[in-house]
Write a protein that binds this DNA or RNA. Structure first.
Lengths: 215, 215
DNA sequence: TAGATTGTTAATCGATTAACAATC
DNA sequence: TAGATTGTTAATCGATTAACAATC
C-alpha cells in the first residue's frame, strides 16, 4: 500500500454506495455525462448535502457548475466497493433459494461468479443446477481452496446456518452472505452481511401497520 | 383506537425487532422461560443498554432479577411487528427468484401467504409454481382486490421494477418488497423495503476489502 | 437480606443537515 | 461576468451507551 491510509467509511455511507452505483450506472447508460448532487439526492430520496458528504469520501472530485462525471463516478464507486474485480462465491444449500441464486444471471453479470453449489442431502447431490452439479459437503473445502473462493452464501434452513457458517469460515472464505432466518456469529476478520427476506417482510409488516394506525 | 397513541419506533429499533424475535423464538423452543437483556445482547452482538432501551418501547415489563419472560416477549414482539396476523402477498416475476420465494415454505410458516404469482411473459403464464399457476398481469388487480392482498413482491428485472411497483400500488397493496437491483419510488402511504441481494453482495465486497486492506 | 436486573435519565457519540466561501 | 455547484465546516439532530436508583 503506497496510498494514504484511508479509514473505513461510516456504515450508513457504505450502505448508500450500492444505491449510488445503480443510479449512476443507469444514468450513464441513458447517455448522461454529468450529474449533480441535487439530481442524485432527488432520485434516491436523500439531501444534496448527504450526497456531497458521501462522495467526498471517494477518490474523485466534482466540478463546480457541472457536478460529477458519471463515467468516473461509476468507476470510482466500483473501485471503492471492491466490485471492480471478480468475486467468487459458493452457495451452500441447493433448495429453492440456493438454486435460484445460482441460476440468477444478475450476480454473474455484476462480477460475482458462482463456483459451486453444495448440499449435505445425498439425494440432492449430483443433480444439476444450471451448468453446475450439486456437490457434497466434503468437496466444500477443496473447491474453496482451489478456485480461490472468497464469499460463502448460506441458503440452508435456520437450524443448520451456524454450522454451515463455521464450515465456510474454516474452509477459508473471507465473507458470508446469510439468507437464513438466523443470527450468525463469526470471528472478527470475517465480514458478514445478512439478507434475510423474512426479516425484511417483518419490517414491512411493521411499516404497513404504522401507516394504517396513524390514520 | 382506545390505546394511548404510540409514536412509531426509531428505524434502527424496527430493524432489530425481527432479530429479537428470532432469538426469543429459538430460546422458547429450547425451553427457556426467562432471558435477561445481557443474554440477548451477548447473543446478538449488542449492549444490554440498547436491548433494554429497545424493549422499553414494547407493551410489556421485565422483572428485576429475572429478566423478560420469553413467551410474553415473543408474543409482544409479534404484535408490535404486526406479524401476529396473516399477511397476503403476490409475487410479480416468475423467474428464478420469484419462483423460489413462492416455493419457499418459510414464508408461509411465518404468516406470509402467497396468493398469486404473475408474469407478463405469455410463455410463462399458465405454468405451475408449486400449487399455484402463473397468471397474466391483467389478473393482478382482481386478485389483489378479491383476496385482500396487502403486500406486493417485486421479482422482475431492473428495467421493469418501477412500472411493476406502480401497477401494484395502483392495484391496492400497502407495502412492497423490492428484490430488483433498482431504486423504486413510491407514494408516502406505501411502505417499501428493499431486499436487494446484489446490493448486499456489494456491501460484503466492501467489507472484505476493508478487512484485507487493514492488514 | 443481598444481589441481580430492570427502567430511565443524562452523557456521549456519530450521522445528517445547513450554510457558505471557493470555484469553474 | 453571473450563477450554479462543489467541498467543507459548524450546528443540529438522533441513536447508543453509561450510570444508577428502584425493585424483586
Amino acid at each position: 500500500m503506497n496510498e494514504v491510509k484511508r479509514k473505513t467509511l461510516p456504515k450508513p455511507v457504505i450502505r448508500r454506495l450500492p444505491r449510488y452505483l445503480t443510479h449512476v450506472h443507469e444514468l450513464r447508460h441513458a447517455g448522461r455525462e454529468w450529474v449533480s448532487s441535487q439530481d442524485i439526492a432527488d432520485a434516491l430520496g436523500l439531501t444534496s448535502s448527504t450526497v456531497r458528504q458521501d462522495l467526498s469520501y471517494l477518490d474523485m472530485a466534482g466540478k463546480s457548475k457541472r457536478g460529477y462525471e458519471t463515467q468516473t463516478l461509476e468507476l470510482v464507486l466500483q473501485h471503492e466497493l471492491g466490485v471492480d474485480s471478480l468475486h467468487r462465491t459458493v452457495i451452500v444449500g441447493a433448495g429453492y433459494m440456493g438454486s435460484a441464486l445460482a441460476l440468477h444471471g444478475a450476480l454473474a453479470e455484476h462480477g460475482f461468479e458462482t463456483c459451486g453449489v453444495f448440499d449435505k442431502d445425498g439425494r440432492v447431490v449430483g443433480t444439476r443446477v444450471g451448468e453446475l452439479r450439486v456437490q457434497p459437503m466434503t468437496e466444500l473445502k477443496p473447491v474453496i481452496k482451489n478456485k480461490k473462493v472468497d464469499i460463502g452464501i448460506i441458503a440452508v434452513p435456520v437450524h443448520a446456518a451456524q454450522e454451515v457458517a463455521e464450515q465456510l469460515v474454516n474452509a477459508g472464505v473471507n465473507g458470508l452472505l446469510n439468507l437464513a432466518y438466523a443470527h450468525i456469529r463469526v470471528p472478527d476478520h470475517i465480514t458478514l452481511v445478512d439478507a434475510r427476506i423474512l426479516a425484511s417482510l417483518q419490517e414491512l409488516a411493521y411499516g404497513i401497520k404504522a401507516v394504517t394506525d396513524s390514520k
